[in-house]
């Protein structure tokens, strides 16, 4: 059980929730399954997979978009409420000692912050070029811009992929809507790492509800992913 320290709206339909009391706060690209029902209630039944926006020590911060009943309930939780969560889950990103290009779209931006921050900590001399695409309203721009040696380019309402200069780095990380990631992978002349999303029941690899097709056969987003090579996922 974790305790909610803060749960605030940061843009239209986008919330930031910070919780404390997590025994393992996880690494960049991992996620937690968050309970959205009250104890002894079975509705909504399943926990919701939400990626780590940032984490340190025993605190984890999630940035999430309200898309349905579960996230609506999350958004209504208050400071001091307890939250039952399972995780950290999934493989997460691997950090490389290279200049990197980070491309996020919509709520897919959330897990890229810890990635960029940890990369900046581990490889301060390397350059990070971050491209963020928004539908109508920006969020988290200040957070990304505050990172050292990090350039932030953004787009509202168009295709952020049109703005990407692939000569800025030697490796691409991307997370966002599937068509965007597919476009990034198609345009990218360099190694591209994608973070995928799927409906999940268990989050630990047992139910096979989140399976996606890859060049290496079926893979579970929750356990084998959510991070895959672009070549593995977008092979068709």
């Amino acid at each position: 059980m974790a305790v909610i320290l803060e749960n605030k709206k940061i843009a239209s339909g986008i919330f930031m929730m910070k919780v404390q009391g997590v025994s393992d706060c996880g690494k960049e690209g991992q996620f937690f399954m968050l309970s959205v029902n009250s104890p002894l209630s079975t509705d909504p039944l399943l926990k919701r997979p939400i990626s780590i926006y940032d984490s340190e020590g025993d605190t984890v911060t999630f940035v999430y978009r309200v898309v349905g009943r579960g996230t609506e309930i999350l958004a209504n939780m208050k400071e001091g409420d307890t939250l039952d969560l399972l995780g950290p889950l999934g493989n997460g990103f691997t950090l490389y000692d290279e200049d990197v290009i980070i491309i996020g779209g919509g709520i897919g931006i959330a897990p890229l912050y810890k990635l960029a921050r940890e990369h900046a900590l581990k490889f301060p001399d390397k350059k990070r070029t971050v491209y963020l695409g928004f539908t109508d309203e920006t969020f988290l721009l200040g957070e990304f811009s505050a990172l050292s040696n990090t350039e932030v380019v953004y787009d509202v309402g168009g295709f952020v992929t049109d703005k990407v200069d692939f000569s800025k780095g030697t490796l691409v990380y991307t997370c966002g809507p599937e068509p965007m990631m597919r476009a990034v992978h198609k345009l990218s002349p360099i190694k591209t790492i994608v973070s995928t999303e799927s409906r999940m029941a268990c989050g630990v690899g047992a139910c096979l509800g989140c399976t996606i097709k890859t060049i290496n056969g079926n893979r579970r987003v929750c356990k084998d992913g959510p991070v895959f090579l672009g070549d593995e996922v977008f092979y068709e």
């Binding site: 079975t42 509705d43 909504p44 039944l45 399943l46 409906r199 999940m200 029941a201 139910c207 096979l208 509800g209 989140c210 399976t211 097709k213 056969g217 079926n218």
Partner: peptide, 22 residues
Amino acid sequence: KGNDGIRIYESASGLMNSIGLE
């Protein structure tokens, strides 16, 4: 390999699955 498409869908206190015996 199981079924294509959405495999999991929640209902009120329930769950529908179409894993397809992967």
